[in-house]
Simulated assay, not measured.
Amino acid sequence: MNYKLSPFYIFLFIFSFGTKAQTTNDLLYEKKEFIVKSDTLLYRIMYPENFSESNQYPLVLFLHGAGERGNDNNTQLTHGSSLFASPENRLNYPAIVVFPQCPKNDYWANLSADRTVKPISFKFQNGGEPTKSLKLVMLLLDELLTKPYAKKNQIYVMGLSMGGMGTFEILSRRPTTFAAAIPICGGANPNTTKKYALNTELWIFHGAQDDVVNPQLSIEMVSSILAAGGTPNFTLFGKDNHNSWDSTFAEPNLLPWLFTRIKK
Rank of each mutant, 00 (worst) to 15 (best):
S223I: 04
T248V: 09
P252N: 04
N243I: 11
T231S: 13
L217Y: 08
F259P: 00
L217F: 09
W257V: 02
H242I: 06
D246N: 15
T235V: 14
D246G: 13
A228P: 08
F249T: 05
L258Q: 04
G230S: 07
I225S: 00
G230K: 08
I225Y: 00
S224D: 02
E251T: 15
E220G: 02
G229W: 13
A228L: 05
L217C: 04
A228K: 03
F234S: 03
G229E: 07
S244Q: 06
S223D: 14
N241Q: 15
F234W: 09
L255V: 05
W245G: 02
D240A: 12
T235F: 11
N233E: 11
G229T: 04
S247A: 10
T231E: 15
T231A: 11
I225P: 00
K239H: 12
G238W: 15
N233W: 11
E251Q: 13
A227G: 04
W245R: 00
W257C: 01
T248R: 00
S218T: 05
A227L: 12
L217T: 03
L236R: 01
Q216T: 14
F249R: 03
P232M: 05
L254E: 05
K239R: 10
G238M: 15
G238S: 15
R261F: 07
W245F: 13
E251L: 12
L258D: 02
F249V: 06
S223N: 14
P256M: 08
S224R: 02
N253R: 15
W257G: 01
G230W: 11
E251P: 10
E220V: 00
F237A: 03
E251D: 12
G230N: 09
H242T: 03
A250P: 10
A227H: 09
A228G: 04
G229D: 07
L236Y: 07
S224L: 03
N233S: 12
F234I: 09
Q216W: 06
G230Q: 09
Q216I: 14
I225D: 00
I225C: 01
F234G: 01
G238R: 15
L255K: 09
D240L: 04
A228I: 04
F237P: 09
F249W: 11
N243F: 12
N253Y: 15
V222P: 00
P232Q: 02
L217V: 04
S247D: 12
S223W: 07
N241L: 14
K239A: 14
S244W: 04
L217Q: 06
L217I: 06
A228M: 06
G238E: 14
Q216N: 12
F249K: 02
N241I: 15
L258S: 01
N253C: 08
G229F: 10
S218M: 03
G238L: 14
F237W: 10
N241R: 10
T231F: 13
E251Y: 15
L217A: 09
T235C: 10
I219A: 11
A250F: 11
F249A: 02
E220C: 01
R261V: 07
S244Y: 05
P232A: 01
T260A: 09
M221V: 03
T260M: 09
L254V: 08
D246I: 13
L217H: 02
F237S: 03
P256E: 13
R261M: 10
S218D: 07
F249S: 02
T235E: 08
L226V: 12
L258Y: 05
L258A: 01
L254M: 09
N253K: 13
T231R: 15
L258C: 02
F237K: 01
H242S: 02
F259Y: 14
P256G: 07
